[in-house]
Amino acid sequence: MPKLSVIVPFYNQYDFVEEAVKSVLAQGYPNLELILIDDGSDGGTLAYLTELSDSICILRQENAGPSAARNYGISEATGDVFAFLDSDDVWPDKKLSSQMAPFLLEEGHGLVLSQLRKLVPSEEKSGQFEVQDDPFYTIQLGCILAKKEVFQTVGIFDESLLYSEDQDWFLRARELEVSMVRIACEGLRYRSHAESLTGRGNRTRDFGLIHVLRRSLKRRNSSGGGAVQSLLSISGIPEWGKTA
């Protein structure tokens, strides 16, 4: 049974962090460490969470952003497989029993991608959230389980990026042809706090994405081999159970 390191960056999301932590513990995975990185929160301590399980470790850093927090977690992690969970999101029941299967049953996979389902504010119960629609594939770190070796190959998250650092990391992984498989199970419940109609028009964020895409094109171009090609899309990633 490979050891799983779950890295949870935390910044002032006190209302949700206990639910996030409990959703990890509820998986019942026997060989797990949960590393909470307090990214310089200015509220109270999280020490009470360690009473939930001996597997919980809380580290603190000066506020440096989620990438730096995740990288700190990676540097301290002792697991064979790494997972990430934002402190306001939760894992659905049986996530790990489903998503760890490709690692347990077949050699060679470096990364397993599961599906995301949104949690949106309830229209009937104030302060409550409810699941929305069906789960779907996307690139969100909370949907990814990746072996430690993948981070040795791809590297850690780019702390210079304020936006799209997860997309940057995933692009790098695809450029390096990390072995990936996707599995049609719900692997993350993503809490959507505000009803943003499109999320468009945030110029700083859009520029961040463009910057990340441009860097990827430059890397692919400099690696030679003729014209730069599109990378594998999610639908091009083999689906576990259909290819095994």
Binding site: F136, Y137, T138, I139, Q167, F170, R174, L213, L217, V228, S230, L231, L232, S233, I234, S235
Partner: peptide, 8 residues
């Protein structure tokens, strides 16, 4: 043109 980021 690149089409690999559709879902993302």
């Amino acid at each position: 043109k690149y089409t690999d980021m559709e879902e993302l």
